[in-house]
Amino acid sequence: MTTYYKDVYIDETATVCGPYEKKGPLRRYFDKCYDDLYVGEDSYEKAEIKLVRSSLKTLMNKANIDKYNIDLVIGGDLLNQITASTYGTYGVGNGFIGIYGACSSSVLGLIIAANFIEGGFVNNCCCVVSSHNLSSEKQFRNPVEYGAPRPNSSTFTSTGAASCLLSRKKTSIRVESSTIGKIVDYGQNDANDMGRVMAPAVIDTLKRHLEDTGRKVDYYDLILTGDLGKYGKEILIDYMRNCYNINLKDNYNDCGTMLYDLYEQKDVHAGGSGPVCGALVVYSYIMHLMRRKKIKRVLFLATGALFSPTLLYQKENINAICHAISLEAV
C-alpha cells in the first residue's frame, strides 16, 4: 500500500549512541555518544530507557519545543512489552502510541506519524526508536557474559536511541511517500543469519513500491535498507538482478554495513542490526547530506525479523517485514 504526502516535513532529528557506534565511521554525525553500555544506570534495560530519554531531550532542545507542545509520541523497541519506549517517553507529549515492527519500527513509526499529520489530526509528532546490544542479547540470545562463538553471518544489535520530529511546518526535508510492507515467509529459520531472513521482505516491499509509483530504481539518489548486513545485502542485489532485472549496485547501500567499520570492528560480524541501526544512519548522516542538498531523493527500507525464540524452538519459520519511506530534499 503506497501513500503520497503533501504536507509532511521532517523538522528535527536527534541521535544518541553507545560505545561501539562511537568507534564507527559516522561518529561525528551523532548528537551524543556514551562510553559506557550501562549509561550510568544499573541494568541494561534501564540503560535503554535512559537512551530514549536522552534522545528525546536532545530533540526537544534542537527543535526548540517543549514536551507539552508535542501532539503525539510514537515509540518502538525490541524489549518485551516495548518497555524502553513506554518508560522512556513518559511525561512527553499529549498522546502515546507504542508500536512493534522489530527492526522496522523506525519507518513504521514515521509512516503512522506522516498519516496522522497528512490527515490533519495532529500538527506535529515525535517518533522514537531504541535498541541496546546487551538487553537484546539477554532477551533473544544467550546471557551477556556467555562467550559462545558466533558465526560470521550473525549481526550485532546497535546501541542507541534515535528520535525524529515530524510536522506540518515547511523544512528542507519532505516525506514524499511511503509503502507499508506485508509479512513474508520464505521458509527461513536461521536466527544467526538475519540478513537472509529479511532480504525477502525488502524484495517484496521494494518491488511493490516501484510498481505502485511507476518509478525505476535510478529515480532515487540513494536506496537504503535497514539492517541486512553484509550477506543480506549481497543476496538482495543478486536476487533483484536475477529475477526482476533491477540493478541496485550504484545507488544502494545497507545501514548495517555503514554504521560500523566492518574491517576494524570484527565483533559486529556481518554488520549492525536493531531498530536504531537504520535510524542512527538516516537521522544523522543521510539527513545531514540531504540538508546540504548533496542527495535529493532517498528511499529508506527498514527491515524487521518478526522473530520469537519460543516459536523458533517450536519449529516455526522466522517471518520478516519491511516498510519503505521516501524522503525528498526541498
Binding site: P151, Y186, G187, R196, A199, P200, Y231, I235, D238, H269
Partner: peptide, 10 residues
C-alpha cells in the same frame, strides 16, 4: 531464493 542465498553464505 534459497539457491541465490546459498551462494552468498558467510
Amino acid at each position: 531464493y534459497n539457491l541465490i542465498a546459498d551462494s552468498h553464505k558467510s
